[in-house]
Design a binder for these strands. Sequence first.
DNA 1: GCTTGACATCCTACTGCTAGGTAGGCTATG
DNA 2: CATAGCCTACCTAGCAGTAGGATGTCAAGC
Lengths: 188, 188
Amino acid sequence: MEMRDQILTSAQRLVQQRGFNGFSYADIAAEVGIRKASLHHHFPTKTDLGLALIEVYSGQLNSALFNISGSSLSANEKLAAYIALYRSSLEAERMCLGGMLASEALTLDATMLPSLKRFFNRNIEWLTEILAEGNLQQLFVLNGSAANHARMLLSALQGALLIARATGDREAFEQTASSLMTGLTRKG
Amino acid sequence: MEMRDQILTSAQRLVQQRGFNGFSYADIAAEVGIRKASLHHHFPTKTDLGLALIEVYSGQLNSALFNISGSSLSANEKLAAYIALYRSSLEAERMCLGGMLASEALTLDATMLPSLKRFFNRNIEWLTEILAEGNLQQLFVLNGSAANHARMLLSALQGALLIARATGDREAFEQTASSLMTGLTRKG
DNA sequence: GCTTGACATCCTACTGCTAGGTAGGCTATG
DNA sequence: CATAGCCTACCTAGCAGTAGGATGTCAAGC
């Protein structure tokens, strides 16, 4: 399974940086050191590869969220840790894989869309939990319901990553992140 | 100049829906009813077309912002009118052209990036004005500086459009929009 | 222990198609 | 007569995907 993992790792980077329509099997082949045709043994079609990528990426997300949830951090700090995931992407000049695929949604095989939707829902679900926790502890002041605020946070972080990466302005990301934290932690 | 405008209109829709890497000259040719080769008379390279699209789109934005600014609407309503621009895109299953190009930034000819950056800066500049206006009138409670809050609003709306379009969940957009308004207008 | 056959993994070579872009010619307008 | 605008025909390069063969591994059967 080592080659399969190498392929997935390479493809993941390519999708996050260049988009699903922005790379080819030839790019992966050159990186992992096998021939283009051999890739089709592991992933018969590009859609198969795409589906596997969403699964892998969702798994990575779940691990990260599980670690944060299980830590002894405050709700503030848990949210900061979540934001740090996006910061890491930005530093690697990568979009969130979900966000990248979302931008290409109308060109993707429709079989990928349900997985993509689940990915976003998982983010919202987790954020909602953290917000509810912080709200209970009176650390957060929410705008509307926890779920609505969670959706807004997800959108804002995806957008901040999108824009900061394209403009090469990392400070812009930090300013949005800080605005999001301020908006939550200010006492009403 | 009628054909040139038809080409731009067609290309704009294609970029907003499918991305700059998601359509070809053949797609445009089929839509506007001339041959592929003839398109190169109007826009020698695809990058030329891309640059023209950003100019046109920035012009459309400036008109819209000018109209909103010059109206007698309250700062609240001006912001709502800005949000409505994104809602219109969503209803047409289109991304913001700037946001779409941003996602593909690493695959674009570098000559397009400065125009793209100016596009985002123009949005932030305008939003900052409106926020400052609303703050002066004590309609808004800002998180941090007006500029930071403006960046956050832009990011959140881009992200909300991105996600809602991909998941087909218009309600998600409305919830983010309402969370953004609540976060601004609530009295501290 | 050795053979046999199934299956995994990789290869070379290729297909059919689409991409952006070019060459050069026709026609109409000013 | 020049130029704008469009055409047919073509080029090279790249795309996802396929055909069919070489090599290797590993387990079943004797």
